[in-house]
C-alpha cells in the first residue's frame, strides 16, 4: 500500500490534474483589480522595504566578507568564496523573504478591517471568497516580486565572483517560493480571524519555526513505540498525526543541496515538481481555512 501511494503513476497524474484545476480556478475567480491593489499597497509598506534593503545589504555584504578573507593571506580557494556567498545569500533570502511573506500575509486583511476599507469593497458585487482570493493572490505577487528581486541581486553577486550563469540558483529560488507559499497561506488563515496584524505575525513566525522542526515529532513517535506507558502511546499517536498532517518545511532544504553540491553529485530533480505540488496543496488548505474563518466573521 505504502509503495502504491509513494510511486503510483496514476496518482501522479491525479495530482497533476488537481494542481491544474486549482491554478485554473485561481486564474478564473481572482478579482485581479483587488490583487493588483494589494500589490501596490504592499510596495508602499516601509517594513517590507526595510527588509528588502537589509537583504540587499547582506547579499552584497557577503562579497565583502569573502573578499576580506582572501585579503588576509590569499590562501582561501575561490570555491570557498563562492560557497560562502551562496550560503549567506540563500540564508538571507530565506530569512528576509519569509519575514516579508509573514508580515504582508499577516497585515493585508487586518489593516483593511481596521481602515474600514473592507466594508466598501464588500458592498460591491464581490463575494467574500473572491475578496479573500484577490488579497491572497496580491500577497503572493508581492512575495514573488521580492523573491525575484533578491534572486536577481544574488545572481549578480555570484556572477561578479564567478562569471557563469547561475542556473542552479533559479531552481533554488523557485523552490524557496513554495516554502514561503505554505507559511504565507497559514499566516493568512490566522490573519483572516484577527483584527490586528500582531497576532498573525507572531503566529506566522511560529508556523515557520514549527514547520522546520516537524521532524522532531518522528523521534517522539519512535520513543513512544518503545514505551509501555499508555500516556506515552497516546502522545506518540498524537505526534504521528501531527507529523503526517503538518507541513514539513525541511523538505525545501533541497534548495541548499542544489546550490552547494558538486557537479557530479546533485539531488534527483524529480523532487522539485513534487515539492511544488506539496506547496500548492498546503496553500489550498490554508486558503480554505482562511475563507472558512473569514466567511463567519461579522463585518
Amino acid at each position: 500500500m505504502s509503495i502504491w501511494l509513494a510511486s503510483n503513476p496514476w496518482l501522479t497524474v491525479l495530482y497533476g490534474v488537481i494542481v491544474l484545476a486549482i491554478l485554473a480556478a485561481v486564474a478564473w475567480f481572482t478579482p485581479w483589480s483587488i490583487a493588483l491593489f494589494t500589490f501596490r499597497e504592499g510596495l508602499r509598506k516601509k517594513t517590507l522595504i526595510g527588509f528588502l534593503i537589509l537583504s540587499i545589504l547582506v547579499i552584497f555584504g557577503s562579497m565583502f566578507m569573502t573578499a576580506m578573507m582572501y585579503d588576509t593571506g590569499g590562501t582561501v580557494a575561490t570555491d570557498v568564496d563562492v560557497k560562502l556567498i551562496k550560503d549567506i545569500c540563500i540564508t538571507a533570502i530565506s530569512i528576509f523573504g519569509v519575514l516579508i511573506a509573514i508580515f504582508i500575509s499577516a497585515s493585508v486583511v487586518p489593516t483593511e478591517i481596521e481602515n474600514k476599507v473592507v466594508y466598501t469593497v464588500l458592498s460591491k458585487p464581490v463575494r467574500r471568497f473572491q475578496y479573500l482570493l484577490g488579497k491572497f493572490v496580491g500577497v503572493q505577487i508581492i512575495v514573488a516580486v521580492n523573491l525575484l528581486l533578491m534572486g536577481v541581486l544574488f545572481s549578480i553577486a555570484l556572477y561578479i565572483k564567478e562569471p557563469i550563469f547561475p542556473r542552479m540558483l533559479l531552481y533554488a529560488i523557485f523552490l524557496t517560493y513554495f516554502e514561503f507559499l505554505i507559511v504565507s497561506a497559514f499566516t493568512f488563515a490566522v490573519a483572516a480571524a484577527s483584527t490586528s496584524a500582531v497576532l498573525p505575525t507572531i503566529a506566522g513566525l511560529f508556523i515557520y519555526i514549527t514547520g522546520n522542526l516537524t521532524q522532531y515529532l518522528e523521534s517522539v513517535v519512535n520513543r513512544s513505540e518503545a514505551s509501555e506507558s499508555a500516556v506515552d502511546k497516546t502522545l506518540g499517536g498524537l505526534a504521528w498525526v501531527l507529523r503526517n498532517t503538518l507541513p514539513d518545511l525541511q523538505y525545501f532544504s533541497l534548495k541548499t543541496q542544489i546550490l552547494s553540491l558538486q557537479i557530479n553529485d546533485t539531488p534527483k530533480d524529480i523532487q522539485i515538481p513534487n515539492l511544488v505540488v506539496y506547496g500548492i496543496l498546503y496553500a489550498l488548505a490554508g486558503y480554505i481555512i482562511a475563507y472558512w474563518v473569514f466567511r463567519r466573521k461579522e463585518l
Binding site: 523538505y251 534527483k268 523532487q271 505540488v277 506539496y278 488548505a285 480554505i288 472558512w292 466567511r295
Partner: peptide, 30 residues
C-alpha cells in the same frame, strides 16, 4: 457551508499530507 468547508479543508490537508508522504519517500529513496 461549514461542513462543506471543513470537509474541503480536511481533503486539502489530506492531499497535502499524502503528497508529503510521497516527498518523504522520494527523499528516503534519494
Amino acid at each position: 457551508p461549514n461542513l462543506v468547508l471543513a470537509v474541503l479543508a480536511v481533503i486539502a490537508l489530506a492531499l497535502g499530507a499524502l503528497q508529503g508522504y510521497r516527498v518523504r519517500n522520494l527523499r528516503e529513496a534519494d
